[in-house]
Amino acid sequence: MNNRAFLSLGTNIGDRLANLQMAIHLLHSQDVITIEKLSSIYETEPVGYTDQPAFLNMVIQISTSLSAEELLELCLSVEQKLGRVREFRWGPRIIDLDILLYNQDNIESEKLIVPHPRMHERAFVLVPLIEIDPTICFPGSDRPLEKVLSSMQEREGVRLWKPNSGEEGFGLSES
């Protein structure tokens, strides 16, 4: 498993913590994925369509033998298993899985753009990502994402909801 990827997870419908736990469990149950690191969980106000409940967001670092496209298909499958319905852009969701970074690759296809095209605009993505790896840079750049975050205005809209308590909160500690 020689590919390193960072995934963003978000939820604002139902039992939000259980939604995150279940998504991570489904990813962890795949032989082709090893979950390396988990961020804390952050609560954030919705972006785009704002007439909806607050989100819980987090980032995980994985290693995988999957290609980026195969990883996207797996993420979409996890969303579908958990009941994700895509009614409209930026609408409420039971779970949302996005590939933020895949190695240091720049990928642009019909189905997938990596790095995630809006991640540098979203504190709710950058805060947990930088928590996992404060030295991480945007692919093709030597500018740490921490510098991007420090220049953002809406960072205060990202509130720590549950500190990272290690893997036990997600059923990953049994090795």
Rank of each mutant, 00 (worst) to 15 (best):
M1P: 12
R4Y: 09
F6E: 08
L7C: 04
S8G: 12
T11P: 00
D15P: 03
R16S: 05
A18V: 00
N19D: 02
L20Q: 00
M22S: 12
M22I: 00
H25T: 11
H28L: 01
S29G: 12
V32T: 11
I33Q: 06
I33N: 06
I35E: 06
E36L: 13
S39E: 12
E43H: 08
G48V: 07
T50R: 06
A54F: 12
F55A: 02
V59Q: 09
V59P: 11
E69F: 00
E70M: 07
E70H: 10
S77R: 12
S77I: 01
Q80I: 00
R84C: 05
V85H: 14
R86S: 10
R89N: 09
R93P: 02
I99W: 01
L101T: 07
Q104A: 10
N106I: 09
I107F: 03
I107Q: 01
L112N: 10
H120D: 05
H120N: 07
L126V: 03
E131L: 13
I132E: 05
D142G: 03
D142V: 13
L145I: 15
L145Q: 09
K147L: 15
K147G: 07
E156I: 09
G157Q: 15
G157H: 10
R159C: 13
L160T: 13
G166L: 02
G166Y: 00
E174H: 15
